[in-house]
Computed example of a mutant assay.
Amino acid sequence: MPDISTNKVVRVIFLAREYGPESSQLHNYISNLNDEEAANLVAIMWVGRDSFEPEDWAEALATATTEATAPTENYLSGIPELPDHLEAGLEALGVDVTDAEDHFRDR
């Protein structure tokens, strides 16, 4: 299971939807994640776009960790479907985002 707070992933989704995947707001937020959180974010996105199955989570995370050659914020900003892939990844992994979504909507 992902080792990044659901709130952080939902924040990335909201920023990508509100400002776009190439926005400075999203770029800055992702650049402040630690290496472990960044790898988890990439692995969630990969599961969401069907590069890995949910049951292959450990492999997705290991691959995200070992293949991190560019800054994560640069890699993810080039993916127009980023918020959709992240949502699909969380859903596939069985992560309930209701509370996190409510938190951001109430702001």
Rank of each mutant, 00 (worst) to 15 (best):
L33G: 04
V47E: 04
F52T: 05
I44R: 03
V9Y: 05
A58F: 03
N32H: 12
I13P: 00
E37A: 10
E18M: 09
V42F: 08
A38C: 07
A58V: 10
A64R: 04
G48E: 03
N40W: 03
R49A: 01
W46I: 00
A16S: 13
E18T: 14
A16C: 03
E36G: 07
G20I: 02
R17T: 10
W57H: 11
R17G: 05
L41Q: 05
E55L: 00
A39Q: 07
A43Y: 09
V47N: 01
T65V: 10
D50F: 11
P54V: 06
P21A: 09
Y29I: 06
A43H: 05
F14E: 14
N32L: 08
Q25L: 12
W57M: 10
S51N: 12
E55Q: 14
K8G: 01
I30L: 02
I13A: 01
R17E: 15
P21N: 13
I44E: 05
D50C: 05
W57S: 11
S31E: 13
V12T: 11
G48L: 04
L61S: 00
S31W: 06
L41R: 05
I44L: 02
V12Q: 01
S24W: 06
L15K: 06
F52G: 03
R49I: 03
I13Q: 02
F52L: 01
V10T: 09
I30D: 06
R49D: 10
P54C: 09
E53S: 15
A39W: 08
E37Q: 14
E22F: 02
E36V: 13
N34Q: 07
E22T: 12
Q25S: 14
L33V: 08
R11N: 12
V42C: 05
V9W: 02
L41A: 08
T65A: 07
P21G: 03
L41K: 04
L61W: 11
Y19R: 12
Q25D: 13
A60W: 02
P54Q: 07
S24M: 10
L15S: 06
T63I: 10
E53F: 07
H27P: 00
A16H: 04
G20V: 00
L26Q: 01
I13L: 02
D50E: 15
E22L: 08
E22K: 14
N40E: 12
S23R: 09
V12H: 02
G48W: 04
V47D: 03
D50S: 14
D35E: 15
I44A: 07
D56N: 15
A58Y: 02
R11I: 01
